[in-house]
Amino acid sequence: MPAKVSQKKNPKRNPLGKVFAGNIGALAVGLKYFFDPNRITLLYPHEYIKLNKGYRGFIVLIKEKCISCSSCARICPAAAMRMLSVKVYNEKLKKYMIKKYPVINYNRCIFCGLCVDVCPTEALYHVPYHDIVYENMNDMILSLEDFQKEPENIEFKEGIPVKYYFDERRGLVKTPYMEELEKRNEKEEKNQKVEGEGEKGAS
């Protein structure tokens, strides 16, 4: 079924009736939302969105899987990923060999995820968050060691994790994501216990 053209016209208004109806309609809609607000705002540092697994956030390298094919660096549209030559000791040949591993510059990264998709061995993956603060621009260029760790997110320690769900009446509904909170509380309790024990030991 191809598209059809439908000829339309601006809705007409007669001078008096529509002026009243229009004003009253506008005011009524305004009042409706005044008394029943439909809020969508995320109070960001106090809350943060727990994003889905497929979200293209920061990128992490699994060094063991890397075969040094340079595909990621070649496909990177912003030249944010480049190959670093590292001397690696080869057990079989019993000598040092130069191997290339990717490193990333988050000053440039645009999170297009092409490197992750093109990697033939799945040595790269995304973590589902992107809101990480670095102290200076030099820190945003990761060393090979940092590139293998999942970056730490400060908001995750204080804010409430929130998920948006689709809703017919309200569009997006913000709901606290309890599972994540519980997980974090458990972790904190454990940490406190460890700390407490440590103190006891010290005393």
């Binding site: 305004g30 939302y33 005044f34 607000p37 439909n38 809020r39 969508i40 705002t41 109070l43």
Partner: peptide
């Protein structure tokens, strides 16, 4: 605040 209520926001908070 009233504008924020109508406009899907919180306003000053």
């Amino acid at each position: 605040k009233a504008a924020a209520y109508v406009q899907m926001r919180y306003g000053p908070w």
